[in-house]
């Protein structure tokens, strides 16, 4: 139980996917313009990352290890995650239209999201079992959502400021992201 809690805390704060591992920077900059789209994207990532961690963990343990094909993990995971996202999209569109209208437009963005693939690969690197992988996937995505929502708030504040012309848009966003990353670096002092 302690181990599960440590995995969660570690994935959300200490090794936050965005501010400490620098995964998924593209959606981080792209979807953080407004807090509500940030939350929508965050939930979509949580949903996909939990399922993909489960699927990739099973495939790794029962297929790749069995045939001594651990070195194929990257390519196999890419294929699995891409198909899984497609499948989820179709599934939601048909059976849960309300959820689809909330997170549907973010799903194609996740198909090739490196954060999702990163979670799957980190799971096998750390030698996590099925349950731990699922927990890690979920918490890493929760950390991603946290980062996205914090940054959306920062961006909302920045909009009200008179930023020098050469810094408008991406430059000031990256500077702000760097400052938040430094703040998050404070968590690295916690030894888990």
């Amino acid at each position: 139980m302690t181990k599960i809690l440590l995995i969660m805390l570690g994935a959300i704060l200490v090794e936050n996917f965005i501010f400490s591992r620098f995964f998924g920077i593209c959606p981080f900059l792209g979807v953080s313009e407004k807090p509500d789209t940030a939350v929508g994207m965050g939930f979509a990532v949580m949903f996909v990352m939990t399922l993909s961690s489960a699927a990739t963990s099973l495939v790794y343990d029962y297929l790749l290890v069995r045939f001594d094909l651990e070195y194929l993990s990257t390519i196999v995971f890419i294929v699995i995650i891409a198909s899984l996202v497609q499948f989820i999209e179709m599934f939601l569109k048909k059976l849960l239209p309300s959820l689809y209208s909330a997170v549907g437009i973010y799903l194609p963005l996740i198909t090739t999201n490196c954060a999702v693939l990163g979670a799957a690969l980190l799971n096998i690197e750390e030698g996590r079992g099925f349950l731990e992988s699922v927990v890690f996937g979920f918490s890493a995505a929760a950390g991603f959502t946290l980062a996205l929502v914090i940054f959306a708030g920062v961006r909302a504040r920045m909009r009200e400021n008179n930023i020098p012309k050469s810094f408008r848009g991406s430059p000031i966003a990256l500077i702000a992201a760097g400052l938040i990353a430094m703040a998050f670096a404070g968590f690295s002092g916690i030894s888990l």
Binding site: L63, I80, M90
Partner: peptide, 23 residues
Amino acid sequence: AFLVLAAVGAILGVMLAAASRIF
């Protein structure tokens, strides 16, 4: 390696094709 990857691809492809019909 070739067979496993091909099998994974084929299975996922068939599943997606079926899903697109069902859903």
